[in-house]
Amino acid sequence: MLGAFASSQQASTLQCGHFDPNFVEALKDGLQHSGQKSSDAPDIPVQQLAMLFTPITELNPQKINVVIRVRVIRKWEFRGATNDGPLRHINLILADEQGTTIHAEIPAALATEKGSLIQIDKVYEIRHFRVMPSRGYFKPVHNNLMIQFTLYTQAKVVNDPPHIFPIYIYNLTSFEKVEENVDNRNYLIDVIGMLTQIGAPHVAGYNNSSIVRDIFIKDISDASLKITLWGDQASGFSIDNVCNQSNNKPIVIMFVGCLAKQFKGQSYLSGTTATTWYFNPNIPEAQEYYIKLQSSDLQLIRPTVAEEECEVSQKPNIEDKTIQELLEMDPDMFPVIIVNPFCSTFLIHKK
C-alpha cells in the first residue's frame, strides 16, 4: 500500500509550484523596481509560475536546467556492505508537493560540502543535478529514476514552506507477504504494527563482533513479525521519549527500509542502513491499530536497565571453516565481517 502523508495543516487545494498572491505581487514589485511600472507589468498566469518548479514525475535524464522543490524525508550514509568502511555516498529520500518521491545520492567527494547542508524535514529548492536511472537493487522508493548531486548542485532552503509536503513516505507490505519477499533485492520493505516486545541487545555474528536487537510487532490480526536491528540501530533503539518505564502498553510503530530474510525456516525483517522507524505515526493505516489498542490487554515486554547494558569487548579471531560450514551459515549473522579467503588444496596422487 503506497502512502505519502502530510500533516493535518496541509492545504488540499495547493498544487506543486503554485504560489499565493503575495508571491505574485512580489514578482510584479520586482519588475517595477527594474524600470517597469506595476501597471505595465504583464499578468503572470499561475500555470507559468508552476513551471518554475518541475514535478518529480516530469524529471528525465534529457531534461536539463530544472528546479525541484522538495522536502527531505530521510537521510542516511552508506559505507559498504560492512557498514564500517569509508563513506561511499549519502542517501536522501525526497518528496515534492504532489507526494511523489525520488531517491537522491550525494557522492562521498561532495559529502562535506553538500551533505552537511541538507537536513531532514527541511524543504529545499534544488537545481543543477543529474537525473539517471535508479539502481536495480535495494530501491528505497518506487521510482525508476534517481537524482545524483554534482559539483554544481545548489540546494537553497525554503523558509515557511506550504504544509502540503508529505511527512511520511512508505509502501507498506503485509506480514503474510514478507515470506514471498525473502531475498527480493529489488525493493526495501516497509511494515506497520503494534510494538509488543523489545529484546535486550546482545552480541552475535562473527565471534560476537556485532550488537544485535530483536524487535517484535503484531499486525491487526495478531500475527507476529521479528525485526532484527544491528550495530548503532540496535543500541540506539529506545522508546523513552514515547512512554515511561512503568507504561507497558504497546505502541504503534512503522519500520521503513528493511530487507526480508529467512533463517531456519522463519521469515523476518533485517535492518539496513536505510532503516528508520516512526512511533505512533499520524497516517491513515495506523488508525485501526489505535482503535484496537484502546480495548486491548496486550502488554509491552521490554528489557530491564541492566539488560540494556551491552558492550562488545571481544575482537574477532581468525577461524578455519570448511566450505560446507560456510554454506550453512546465516549471512545476516555476520554483517561486519571482512573476509580474506585462503584455500588450501591437497593433491592426492593415485598409483
Rank of each mutant, 00 (worst) to 15 (best):
T273I: 00
K292R: 13
W277E: 01
F279Y: 14
F279L: 05
F279C: 07
Y289L: 00
F279R: 12
K264H: 14
C258Q: 08
Y268Q: 04
A260Q: 06
L269V: 11
Q294C: 05
F255I: 10
C258P: 12
Q287S: 06
L293T: 10
I291F: 03
Q262E: 14
F263A: 02
Q294G: 08
Y290P: 03
V256F: 00
Q266M: 06
K261Y: 08
Y278I: 09
Q262K: 15
S267W: 05
P284D: 11
Y290K: 11
C258T: 15
Q262S: 15
I291K: 10
Q287G: 00
V256R: 13
K264T: 09
S267A: 15
S267I: 11
T273V: 12
G271V: 08
L293G: 04
K264P: 01
L269C: 09
Y268T: 09
I291N: 06
E288L: 07
I291W: 02
E288C: 07
T275I: 02
L293C: 04
T275W: 01
T273K: 04
A260D: 02
C258L: 14
L293V: 08
Y290E: 10
Q266Y: 08
E288K: 13
Y268S: 14
K292M: 03
A260K: 10
N282F: 05
F255D: 07
Y278V: 05
Y278G: 02
C258F: 03
L269I: 08
F279G: 07
T276F: 01
F255L: 06
I291P: 02
Q294D: 02
S296Y: 04
Y290I: 09
S296M: 04
S296G: 03
L269R: 12
E285V: 01
N280I: 05
F263W: 14
E285S: 09
L269Y: 05
Q262Y: 00
